Simulated assay, not measured.
Amino acid sequence: MDAQVLTVSTKGQISLPVEMRRQLSINTGDRLVAYAHGDTIMLKTLKLPTVDEFDAMLKEAQSWAASVGYKEEDVNDIIKSYRKEKRGQA
């Protein structure tokens, strides 16, 4: 893993070195996700799916849901249950 020292501008911005952008195929307008934990910041490229990729993922999820017996009306109960479980872990 290559390490680079970056400087934060007065506007809170950083610039990624050209070689790092080339290596990761990061282009103007691409989006990154920033994760912070303690004194660590991690950047990850965000690749949004195309409409066709999204449709394929949706069909796969619908097929799985049908295979385990879930119906559309079950969705709200599943979400509530998940949120309740998450609150209990916090």
Rank of each mutant, 00 (worst) to 15 (best):
Y82G: 03
T10S: 15
L48I: 04
I79G: 09
Y35K: 14
G88L: 11
K47D: 04
F54D: 02
A3S: 15
T40G: 04
L6W: 03
Q23K: 06
R31M: 10
T50G: 06
T50W: 07
S25A: 06
I14Q: 08
V33Y: 12
D74N: 06
N27S: 10
D52N: 14
L6C: 01
S9W: 05
P17M: 08
E73N: 05
I41W: 07
D39E: 12
A56D: 11
K11D: 13
K86I: 15
I79F: 14
R87E: 13
R83H: 12
S25E: 01
L6A: 02
M20P: 01
V33S: 15
E85R: 12
A65M: 05
I79A: 15
V51Y: 07
P49L: 05
D55S: 11
D52K: 09
R87P: 03
E60I: 06
T40C: 02
W64G: 14
D77Q: 11
Y35E: 14
K84T: 13
A66N: 04
T10H: 12
E19T: 13
S25D: 08
S25F: 00
S81A: 13
M20N: 03
Q4N: 15
T10W: 11
M57L: 07
Y70C: 02
S63A: 13
I41E: 04
I79T: 13
K86N: 14
A65C: 07
P17C: 07
L24M: 13
S63M: 12
V68G: 00
I79W: 14
A66S: 07
V51T: 10
V68C: 00
V18A: 14
S63H: 14
E53L: 05
F54L: 07
T10M: 13
D2K: 06
A36R: 15
E73V: 01
R31C: 08
S25Q: 08
V8H: 10
L48Y: 09
T10F: 11
A66E: 05
R22F: 06
I41K: 04
D2V: 07
I78M: 12
T50D: 05
T45W: 02
H37Y: 07
K71Y: 00
Q89P: 05
L58G: 09
Q23F: 03
G69P: 00
V5F: 03
G12W: 10
V68Y: 01
Y82D: 12
V75W: 08
R83W: 07
P49Q: 06
Y70N: 00
Y82T: 13
E72N: 01
S9C: 07
T45A: 04
D77R: 08
G88M: 09
L43E: 04
